[in-house]
Amino acid sequence: MSGIDIELARLMATLMLVVSFMLLYQDRLAGLINAYALQSGLLALAVAAQAHAQEAPHLYVTALLALVVKGLAIPLALHRIVLRLGVHREIEKVIGVGTTMLFGLAVTMLAVLVVLPVTETAAALTREDLGFALAIVLLGLLTMISRRNAVSQVIGFMSLENGLILAATGARGMPLVVEVSVAFSILIAFIVVGIFLFRIRERFDSVDVHALDRFRGELP
């Protein structure tokens, strides 16, 4: 394997982490979806670089899947959903942008602190990939909890899954079946959540999950 592959894969993973931070401060739905599409594209590149570095041809399939499904199909579908829902294009935040970014930084540091000592014996590429992947997972979760909008929760969830795929492809010898099944479950989740979005909108004229809580009679 050549050095440039590893550097490329690392660069892509780093860029994915940067895009995760972009997801945190987006305040418009369109921007959020575009950032997610960008992250998925970067994931596809990272996986392709991994495939070249590890000389594992089946990873090209994963990269292609990531590009077509997550980089193109899902963002396009989400854009259509947002258009058809005709909801507010702005996202109501629970926590301010600055605070969220600070949390994000802390979580990223934590991820690096945890992963680096654990994987001292692992190959250098795997180590840093795992650290990035864990940070992306935690940031995805943070995206989910810092918004009240259902669409942004879906995006946070799928960004979290991008982190999982990154971790999985970083490890050597991950069978394709596992990746395919993970991707498939994400697709199902996307479909289910998409349908629910329409149902929620029909019922409440909004996709603010706050409406759900009010409906359950738990919030004033």
Partner: peptide, 18 residues
């Protein structure tokens, strides 16, 4: 609420990582 459950999951994960 759903979001609060997610917050709990997040906090538990962070605590374990710490």
């Amino acid at each position: 609420t759903i979001r609060r459950y997610l917050v709990l999951v997040f906090l538990a994960l962070v605590a374990l990582l710490v």
